[in-house]
Design a protein around this nucleic acid. Sequence first.
RNA 1: GGUCGGGUGGCCGAGUGGUUAGGCAGAGGUCUGCAAAACCUUGUACGUCAGUUCGAAUCUGGUCCCGACCUCCA
Length: 666
Amino acid sequence: MKTSNELKIYNSLRKEKETFKPIHESHIGMYVCGPTVYNEVHLGNCRTFMSFDIVFRYLKHLGYKVRYVRNITDVGHLVGDVDTGSEGKIAKRARLEKLEPMEIVQKYTNSFHKVMAKFNTLPPSIEPTATGHIIEQIEMVQSIIDNGYGYEVNGSVYFDVQKLVSEGKIHDHIYGHLSGKKQEDLFTATRDDLKNQGEKRHPSDFAIWVKAAPNHIMRWQSPWSEGFPGWHLECSAMSTKYLGDRFDIHGGGLDLQFPHHENEIAQNMGACGCAPVNYWMHANMLLLNGKKMSKSKGNSILPKELFDGGHKMFEDDRGYSPMTVRFFMLQAHYRSELNITQEGLDAAEKGYARLMHANQTLDKLDYLGKETITKKDTELLALLAEANELAVALATYNAEGIQASPKIFLATAFASFALLNKLEKLVNPLVKNYEQNHSKNDLGKTLWSIQEFVANTIQQLLDMNNTLRQLPVQLNKFLELDLEHLLGDEASQTKRLRGQFKGFEKKMAHLVEQLTNLNQHNAIVSDPALAREDAIRSNLNGFYEKMNDDFHTPSAIANLFELSKQINQIKKCQLHGTKNLSLATFNRLQNTFSTLIFEVLGLKDETLSMNDDGDTLDQVLQMLIKMRQDARQNKDFATSDKIRNELHKLGIQLHDNKTETTWEKI
RNA sequence: GGUCGGGUGGCCGAGUGGUUAGGCAGAGGUCUGCAAAACCUUGUACGUCAGUUCGAAUCUGGUCCCGACCUCCA
């Protein structure tokens, strides 16, 4: 297992995980390509932004000051359709909806923010728009031209990719490296049905300023023509403006790797002479029906359709809450494809609830102290060690051995009997208690209160099953021997010995059987406190190790589930009066768990009613719970069940346990 | 066609040259007036064919299948 304290990030630039070293010690610049606001964001878009929300949150959690810039693309992006000429997506949408382009932009920007808020993603530090940075973009085009990487044709300006490629490595970067494109491919790959192909010097060149066609609505004045900035320019201009010529992290969807990000680098190289980004991160695609989710291909699902239910992909009309969806996505690594299915969402829903319940349980837990190891524990442990020694010792005896050292043999044999008796003395009360109180509360109490430490030794005892069974087998072998003769002077003891042999095997078999039985009925929990301390510590540490491993949320969540199990066990132990945890570990768990869930993973507890009426609602419910308790006391189960069932219909689930009844929204 | 990535148990989804991912679902048990939750135990696995190796699901090669990018897309 990797036990690195260093954050490692998979860098698309070099196709490997690298230790993250920020440019400035404590301040990090991160740029993520945002949405084009000409339509509702679909769920695939959301996945990318949630992935980088995790990056943002975790970096902040580690103590970095992060400037997170995510743009809103509110101009450009020509639709590929040849019939529409050079019309942009936003302009086209504006025409279809009979609105101003800026009305379209505002409408879908608002909607985007609303959706992202539902998913509980933090807003970026700066959210610049392309139309708000036309001047910066024009300046960048000018710089690119001035540096000899851009050329103007008929009012449009193109980036001279060939020139950049011909210069080879510039400041450790080669065009095409990010997307893994070979230079020969770049020369031939580009299809020739693109607009204005004829104006380019080379097929791989791309527009950085486009002269607007007469029917184009969105247009600005520039030194070259009335037009609009090229497809990739805004990110270069705005990242430079807010994060500088060089910054730490640039993120986006994998589908932007080429050509968008490749060209972004080219533009920065052209304008500033340096590669802008140290760590390129790419989030993988969300799949629907095994194919990339995509608006243009009609293979997409909107967040709203998922929340409200009724989407055609689901059998029933049920929906899934934003946090269920978020959790679903966090259970896959951001660099893996994720196929969205109903079964997957169902599983996520339950897993998410499990985590929330554990957190609520932990929240209410008080520290009850820690018991030291009891006398009983040490006794049993010592006996186990003794049993082992005796078994080993007896196994070495043969006829010659007995004759050579009769006294030692006798001592060993009698010690075995003594051991059996002592074990019985310790175990029998447990068995007796179990048998007498088979379905009584005391059973649990008694058995839990013997301390898990004892439980563990019993487990060890069972593990030694074979060894223990060997004891009588070994002794029986000696019955075949002429002990009187072999033992000589000690022969007077043999009568007693033979007598004890007879019952030994039976007794031992019985003891082992009883223990096995107890264990199978889960009367004894094989989960010692010592192991618990360890489990809690290692899983808390594990969370950080996994997150440090390229933000590996699925593995980190596995650690949280392990912690959930521990929390539930602590609760169960406490109900049975067992105190089993050190204060330090308890405090650490209670202080950290919710932080990891809420602050780092960005989940919210939807199972609690945290609205304005929460207090009142709770009071009302406490009243009903009290009434129901009274009914139950009086064995009036008809009434108690009615209360519970009626509440259930209203979406309130009651949970009974030994000491109290709790409620939650479902 | 070119480039790249992947094929893991009923489902989702990690990881690894020999040692538990995890969640959901399934089976058995404990607790419980009954539920719910929780706890304990548990089965099923690494597309296919060959090779390297003491040992491969993990490495190599062939093969089949799927996906992404090459055209706006997160």
